[in-house]
């Protein structure tokens, strides 16, 4: 088979340690960062646990909504879905592509939409209420939560925090950060991020451009790390 032969040919090539490079923007400043293959593997393991908590397994079907340039944050969830045996489709975060998220939700037995933002929620127009009623679990970005709630959903939250991502578990007690990789500090309502794990990207108390509050202490889900509630985006 083509895939098998091409995969074998590619496997013989030298492989760099970088999985990829991406960028987050803080108040108009570009911050480039590298993701190693080891970073990506650990992120995928964490994503797998978060998705499993939301019931993702072989009977699930997901639409994961994110731009291609957001793959360092969202690819681990795509890979995790696949590893959990759940088929996934991808939606883009552009208004003109909102139809695709709606189409998958309408045509397929989708059990979770992950990552929907306000642009897509608005782009769905009248279809949003139908999507909200049909899909049991919606994990939305903070800017879409209000619209989805108005449409009848009870969304959980996923939010990018600088180079990291935070996801709410089913207990709705704030979005979990992977504490083995990152730590957050709050000063004057603003969130600052530091590297905690053996990541390629090292930052110390770096501004995230986000306002929010932190919760410490154990969550009913059993995780003990920080949880974050983003209250405002400041030019990120």
């Amino acid at each position: 088979m083509t895939l098998a032969s091409t995969t074998a040919a590619a496997a013989a090539l030298p492989r760099p340690w970088q999985w990829g490079i991406s960028r987050y923007d803080i108040a108009g400043q570009h911050v480039y960062f590298e993701i190693s293959w080891d970073d990506w593997r650990r992120d995928t393991a964490w994503a797998r646990a978060m998705l499993a908590d939301h019931g993702t397994g072989p009977d699930a079907g997901l639409v994961i909504v994110g731009g291609s340039f957001e793959s360092p944050w969202f690819d681990p969830f795509e890979t995790a879905a696949r590893e959990l045996g759940a088929p996934y489709s991808t939606g883009e975060i552009w208004a003109f592509e909102a139809f695709r998220t709606g189409m998958y939700a309408r045509r397929l037995p989708i059990t979770m939409i992950f990552g929907i933002d306000r642009t897509v929620a608005e782009g769905l127009g009248d279809e949003l209420a139908e999507v909200a009623g049909r899909v049991p679990v919606i994990v939305a970005r903070p800017d879409a939560a209000g619209l989805l709630a108005e449409a009848g959903a009870q969304p959980f939250i996923v939010t990018r925090v600088g180079p990291a991502i935070a996801v709410e578990c089913p207990h709705r007690s704030g979005a979990h950060l992977n504490g083995a990789e990152w730590t957050l500090a709050e000063r004057g309502g603003e969130l600052f991020i530091s590297t905690a794990g053996p990541r390629a990207h090292r930052v110390s108390e770096a501004a995230t451009g986000l306002a929010g509050r932190l919760a410490e202490g154990p969550c009913p889900c059993g995780r003990t790390g920080q949880r974050v509630t983003v209250t405002e985006t400041q030019g990120a």
């Binding site: 091409t6 995969t7 590619a10 090539l13 030298p14 492989r15 760099p16 970088q18 999985w19 990829g20 490079i21 991406s22 960028r23 994110g66 731009g67 291609s68 340039f69 957001e70 793959s71 360092p72 690819d75 795509e78 991808t90 883009e92 552009w94 592509e97 695709r100």
Partner: peptide, 30 residues
């Protein structure tokens, strides 16, 4: 290595070859 994902993770072809995708937005306005 960006673009549209409607056909899936297009950066896989880069990564297969040991190239490093630079994932920044190349959509309209990017």
């Amino acid at each position: 290595g960006s673009g549209f994902k409607m056909r899936g993770p297009l950066y896989h072809s880069d990564q297969m070859l040991g190239a490093i995708p630079v994932m920044v937005s190349t959509a309209i306005g990017g």
